[in-house]
């Protein structure tokens, strides 16, 4: 008796879960009508990070691209194209992250170049002083 009851409850649970899954999928396919606030916030944060890392100097094009995407995302929100806005915001974020990464790479390369140059200068100076003696 008890087993039958449990079996029925289980079946119902499976049915409900499956239907919910189907609903979720349907909703996921359809365009959401709420502004993608989280994506937009993350994009803004990433752009701020890039600016603070001095990306304007080292990766200006990437930063510019991020700003362009963010602007387009804001426009899409205004036009109530929320799915598009979400994508654009995510593109803005990833572009800003690339700006940060390229800035880091450019700075790291500059430091290594200077370190190499310093060593060369010392070697050269030594060679010259050796000649003078």
């Amino acid at each position: 008796m008890k087993t039958v009851l449990i079996r029925q409850a289980f079946r119902r649970a499976v049915l409900v879960t499956t239907l919910m899954l189907a609903t979720v999928t349907l909703v996921a396919c359809a365009a959401p009508q709420v502004p993608p606030t989280e994506s937009l916030n993350m994009a803004r944060e990433a752009i701020t990070n890039a600016e603070q890392a001095d990306a304007r100097r080292y990766a200006g094009a990437e930063l510019e691209e991020a700003n362009r995407h963010l602007e387009a995302a804001d426009k899409a929100v205004a036009a109530e194209k929320m799915a598009e806005a979400d994508r654009l915001a995510k593109q803005a974020r990833v572009a800003a992250e690339l700006a940060v990464a390229r800035t880091g790479a450019a700075k790291a390369a500059a430091i290594n170049r200077e370190m190499g140059r310093g060593t060369d200068a010392l070697d050269e100076e030594m060679r010259r002083q050796g000649e003078q003696q």
Binding site: K90, Q91, V94, A95, E97, L98, A101, R102, G104, A105, A108, A109, I111, N112
Partner: peptide
């Protein structure tokens, strides 16, 4: 687009750590 930028980010981060 997202994939392309992710690849580029990986490249830049790899360069940073290599230089370091």
């Amino acid at each position: 687009y997202m994939a392309d930028r992710s690849v580029e980010i990986a490249r830049a981060k790899g360069q940073i750590r290599l230089l370091e």
